[in-house]
Design a protein around this nucleic acid. Structure first.
Lengths: 116, 116
DNA sequence: ACACCAATTTGGAATCATTCTAAAAGTAAT
DNA sequence: ATTACTTTTAGAATGATTCCAAATTGGTGT
């Protein structure tokens, strides 16, 4: 079965990767299984503006998103639940925190053309 | 011109609302202008998993998202930039923070059917 | 081996939000 | 009112994802 990956793959990428080993899997199956795994809490879906969903491991962590190229990077800021609950005044189930920055690659490349 | 609204409307909702007063505006125009306003920093786009983009005012604030019905609510946790930068160890341009909770409405309704 | 039921997979059509495109309509200055 | 520019329009196109009904696969008991 499709097991979770260590990077931040999209359904399409998982599909592509699978094709070499299992040439007959259908894209629908990939979506089915990714969805199932998400429901079961085995993997985590990361959606970002204007790009296909990425799938990620479930260990607690947050994300750095490059403003230029959209590249996604894990970063662990620790568990802020307590703090956020206190400030918001409601009890929360979870939270989604994305830090927008400019990745090293894009910092070099003057106008961010060659990223990703 | 289409000016920003005080709630969290989708392009479709803006379109619908406009139709009564300007029956000939096209949906494409709404998208054009919402996009422009976003670029110009006059409004803010809020994208959430599995639902159309919502548009929001630009004053600094974060969001509460109901897990059941997806309803979006403003909440202000103050500016966490300093703190997050310190923890992440990189300088960030901005951040996007969504707190997942269960709204009052959905808490009442035993299985969240009647929300939104 | 064999038949039976359930669960999974397939491939292709369908959906939905959004963008693209090329033509039409405004708007302004000359 | 003529050119030059910008905005708008309508509808087609796109792209990610879901839906669907048919086909395949997996046991399980015999």
């Amino acid at each position: 079965m499709v097991s979770s990956s260590n990077c931040h793959m999209t359904a399409e990428q998982v599909f592509a990767k699978l094709q070499s080993t299992y040439p007959k899997v259908a894209l629908a199956t990939v979506y089915n299984n990714l969805n199932r795994l998400c429901e079961d809490g085995a993997i985590r879906r990361v959606s970002m503006e204007g790009m296909p969903d990425h799938y990620d491991h479930i260990q607690r962590h947050d994300h750095l998103v490059c403003q230029q190229c959209g590249q996604l990077l894990d970063v662990d800021l620790g568990d802020l639940t307590q703090q956020l609950e206190a400030k918001a005044g409601v009890s929360i189930l979870s939270y989604d925190l994305k830090l927008v920055y400019v990745c090293e690659n894009c910092k070099k490349t003057i106008n961010g053309k060659e990223c990703e």
